[in-house]
Design a binder for these strands. Sequence first.
DNA 1: CGGCTTCTTGAAAAGTATCAAATATAGTGG
DNA 2: CCACTATATTTGATACTTTTCAAGAAGCCG
Lengths: 187, 187
Amino acid sequence: MQESTSASPAFSHGERIFEAGAAGLAWRVVSGSVRLDRREADGQLWLANLAVAGDIIGAETLVFGAYTFEATALSPCVLAPWPEGDGVPADNSLLTTLAGAERRAAKVLALRYGQALERVRRLVRLLARDGEAGSVVLPSRREMADITALTLETVSRAVSALRQSGELQPQRKPRGVAGPRSFSVAA
Amino acid sequence: MQESTSASPAFSHGERIFEAGAAGLAWRVVSGSVRLDRREADGQLWLANLAVAGDIIGAETLVFGAYTFEATALSPCVLAPWPEGDGVPADNSLLTTLAGAERRAAKVLALRYGQALERVRRLVRLLARDGEAGSVVLPSRREMADITALTLETVSRAVSALRQSGELQPQRKPRGVAGPRSFSVAA
DNA sequence: CGGCTTCTTGAAAAGTATCAAATATAGTGG
DNA sequence: CCACTATATTTGATACTTTTCAAGAAGCCG
């Protein structure tokens, strides 16, 4: 983990953020994207939800005293403790947050509907903060495949197609700068 | 609608239970299954979640004063007002309920992963109260197709296969009794 | 510069959707 | 209760999409 400070931890691509059953805080995703998984009886991890900038993760720990899901960084991301002023969340804000997670789950379901190209396009847009023309750091093809319920080869082909059509443009990166490649997303 | 009493309404297959934006109570699903949809900007309905016996639906109305989703009966179902003693839900029970909906959403996601036969099998088991060998009234093939992100023809073929393998057995129904056919589900 | 992982691409196989028809089921009014 | 009609389901044949298997290219790290 690469915490810049303990108050606003940063995670790089693929890092575990918290585990199911552990105790801890709830967090607001400041930037980047997070994958939430549920560990099943068979030991397998099943995607349960996604969170992007602005979303709250781990709110259930304030109810149950432990995380329900396992959180992993999909792309480089920064978190901030939630709620802001340490202590009890303001009236209803916890409820609002949980209700929001339910709405988010509906979007994730949509990532598994339709043809491969559409699905990958929807995922890219979700990660790019829902349609804003900005820059995205895409997760690994394997992660994208898990999320969309496609294979990584199919995702790779779809990303190639989006690049060819100009919807995704690899951003020029100062040479010698480390880190994953980012893309700009066209409308 | 075929409300038996206003306290414990019953809905038949396909009936609307409540609409997004409307005010109303939260309900516990006593029996049957319910589909929750989110109405998108384009006017389309997107599956957001499922609820089976024991689940609570419309809990967000206690936070926002209006339903977030649109609820439709998938199979004949009976509801009861929630929480039981009318008034404010007991401490934490609303939070627990919303957190439960999040866990349920993860199961629905799993219905869109893997091959057609597996998906339909998982759906049938979910509707049969998660593995209990009991009887199920299956929703229409069209509904099952919406949920699993398959076509109704593919769902039909999968149901036929489950019947042939003995996993699903049509239950003998007293002749002349109306209503949809129910199946018993083998382990 | 290797050695490693991830990504890309191709070709063949498998699975699903689509289109079309036949059958079954539910609903309605005689 | 039965015939009739509308709707839902099942099944088949074919077209399309995705997966699978395989190999090569590109990126990352010491």
